Amino acid sequence: MSILINESTRLVVQGITGRDGYFHAMKMKAYGTNVVAGTSPGKGGTDVDNIPVFNTMYEAVDQTGANTSAIFVPPAFAADAIMEAADAGIGLIICITEGIPTLDAIKAYSFVQQKGAVLIGPNSPGLISPGRSMVGIMPSRIFTKGSVGVISRSGTLTYEVVSHLTAKGLGQSTAIGIGGDKIVGLRYRELLEMFEKDRETQSIVLIGEIGGCAEERAAEFIRWQITKPVVVFIAGQFAPPDKQMGHAGAIISSGMGTAAEKIAAFEAAGVMVAREPCMIPKLIVETQLKRIRV
């Protein structure tokens, strides 16, 4: 099993005729993802490498049965693209676009919730269930099928951590980048619950960073609701206060959101925290051994 995407995923790429949309559509198709359609207003009726292109999401869903979308359109139009996908009946929307205005993101997120769809991102690298499907911009060669679920706010840290896991023979069930913006769709809590219910996932890696309180809320949720071993890494341990570091959400202000506070919250919940990414595989094995002994 895996969460969110698998062999039954039918993907439409919004913005498929743009530079980034085309490049990553080809990467996803080459990986084995079932890319059934693309959209690009004004270019309906054409195709990209035998992938049919439609003017609207409504046409794409109606004619191909698409159930998932990946968004590669410019920031000014991305919120509309999210809402159009949800309105057309897409159940899972992955927004790769970054730099979407905050008020636009709030409007789109609210609309997606009203439609009962699921949003990952904005500013997300996407997700991958190794050997089954990949949606986004993940470097698929570093992933391998296994039982470790990965949730991260950082794309590049996801890749670093996964490369360490794979090198130590610890494959992944699904790896997800939730996005680094202040407003995003799925967060740690919802994904932790999905991994808890997934029979294939035996342990979970959570990669957080400074800013906000999402990690502290995740720690509390893990304390009471998660039975599987969890290992955490928090980036930004030496970041200065009141200065944005990378992602829009990675800013410490008013004495909240520091790495130290997040680490303390996880440790108080009994979660093992890695001080460096390279330590994660060792801690995963230790948590699994402890579970066996118990």
Rank of each mutant, 00 (worst) to 15 (best):
S253L: 09
T158L: 14
V118G: 01
A60N: 05
P52Y: 06
G185P: 10
R187M: 09
G44N: 00
I183R: 01
I210W: 04
A30M: 10
N50K: 11
R189F: 00
R199L: 12
A260S: 11
K243W: 01
M272T: 14
K107E: 12
P101R: 08
V184M: 06
Q202K: 15
G89V: 10
I51L: 06
F238P: 01
S2K: 00
G211R: 03
G249H: 02
G246A: 12
L11I: 06
A259N: 08
S254T: 03
A76M: 09
Q244H: 04
A85Q: 02
G208T: 08
A78V: 09
G146E: 07
G15W: 00
M83F: 01
T46F: 01
K290N: 13
T102A: 10
E267Y: 05
A70P: 11
G126T: 12
L119F: 00
E215Y: 02
T227W: 02
I51Q: 02
I284R: 04
A105C: 12
D47L: 01
L186I: 09
P240W: 08
I263Q: 06
K262H: 10
I82P: 05
S110G: 10
V285E: 13
T68P: 01
Y159D: 03
R293Q: 14
P130T: 11
G42P: 02
N50Y: 05
I93T: 05
A108R: 04
L92C: 08
I120P: 05
D47I: 00
A219H: 04
I137C: 06
G121S: 11
M279T: 02
E267R: 15
A30W: 02
M83R: 06
R275S: 13
L186Q: 12
S254H: 12
A105R: 08
G146F: 08
V148A: 14
V36G: 02
I137V: 15
A30F: 05
P101V: 04
I251C: 13
T158M: 15
M194P: 03
G211W: 04
M28H: 03
T227N: 14
S124W: 02
T9E: 03
E84P: 04
K115P: 00
G169W: 09
F54V: 13
Q244V: 12
Y188N: 14
I280H: 05
A117E: 00
L289P: 02
P240G: 09
T158E: 05
